[in-house]
Design a protein around this nucleic acid. Sequence first.
DNA 1: AACATTTCATACCGAACGGTATATAGGGGT
DNA 2: ACCCCTATATACCGTTCGGTATGAAATGTT
Lengths: 207, 207
Amino acid sequence: MKCSAPLALASATRGRPREFDPDQALAAALQVFWRRGYESASMAELTEAMGITKPSLYACFGNKEALFKKALDLYERDKLKYIGTALEAKTAHEVAERLLNCALATHCGASDPQGCLGVISMVGCTAEAESIRADVVARRASSEAAVVRRFEQAKADGDLPESVCPTKLASCLMTVLQGLSVKAQGGAKREDLQGAIDTFLTMWPRR
Amino acid sequence: MKCSAPLALASATRGRPREFDPDQALAAALQVFWRRGYESASMAELTEAMGITKPSLYACFGNKEALFKKALDLYERDKLKYIGTALEAKTAHEVAERLLNCALATHCGASDPQGCLGVISMVGCTAEAESIRADVVARRASSEAAVVRRFEQAKADGDLPESVCPTKLASCLMTVLQGLSVKAQGGAKREDLQGAIDTFLTMWPRR
DNA sequence: AACATTTCATACCGAACGGTATATAGGGGT
DNA sequence: ACCCCTATATACCGTTCGGTATGAAATGTT
């Protein structure tokens, strides 16, 4: 159960040393979860992709749910770090532009287009895994709240028209982001997504 | 396997008459699929909600996949009929307005907000059920194509600026629709969705 | 009344699921 | 060397999954 040093520098000098790198294994697990979603990713698939056996997985990561949450942490740290940097853009329009285009790049990056891990897991989890759902929902809410704050700042800067509501505009933008995930998950072409993004940005409220 | 008269007026005079109404049972199945998604809806849940036993279900509907597709037909016929009527609106803006608001009403109608059955099933199906996925994707593509045609007409009517591309605008609108489903599935409040819709409509390109 | 036909209810099937008991192997501490 | 501790590999656990075999019940036909 215990995973004393949290995934890195596990310099437990006592006992047989583990023969795999937890970070690398977690990265492999993330790929599986991202491709298949939480519930559809089976332990057999995970262990095979991670190159370890089930007891090793359980000893190091706890259980499937804990493994997923660690993978989700990694996902946010690596794949969603563009959200933080996008918020640093100078104008609200540029914030939206970066968010949308970086999302596109992330989800159409490597092979086939695939949606956001959060969207896939939140939508796909209804049966058990209510905890997973709640976790994803909370993370998403915090992202949206950050966008709201950024747009409030933009409005104070005179960067957005007085008539727009930062909360609603952020909700609208997040809606588009999540819609892009669904389209990507449905196998949409990159040009299709790019068209939706460009059109939305053209519609963006100007001062 | 055979389900001779397709779900209605099964006036097979020979043999023991069935003790349930297939249409009613299918409606109950639709509720389960809508709430839980294709894979998460178990046969036990389905049979309980439909008030029949498993052999009855298999005799009448074939198997889980065939049952789902029949439920999806019913869903499009009942819950998504607003798409057809929305396309009859006079202006492109009104088309978008109707599509978005009717989607909101559908997904926040009864109890807790829930996303579109198509979105839930397409995103949630990765493992088996590739056939389900393909079916949903095809239906969605046909809907989007209808919107494209409507916007081309609107442009011909001078109802949309020359600068907008009907294909891209339709893609953008469908993206928002699907994003709303995700937000609804995540437990978003009705006002939140309404805010996103209103903001998007405010941004709508004007002639 | 006897038969054919269809539905119903129960119990069951093999497979896959997440998770674990157990025994062995491989390191440091002393 | 020996002991302790931890990771490994194999085999297994109970549960749930979608789907079905089987026999009884209920109708129309003759």
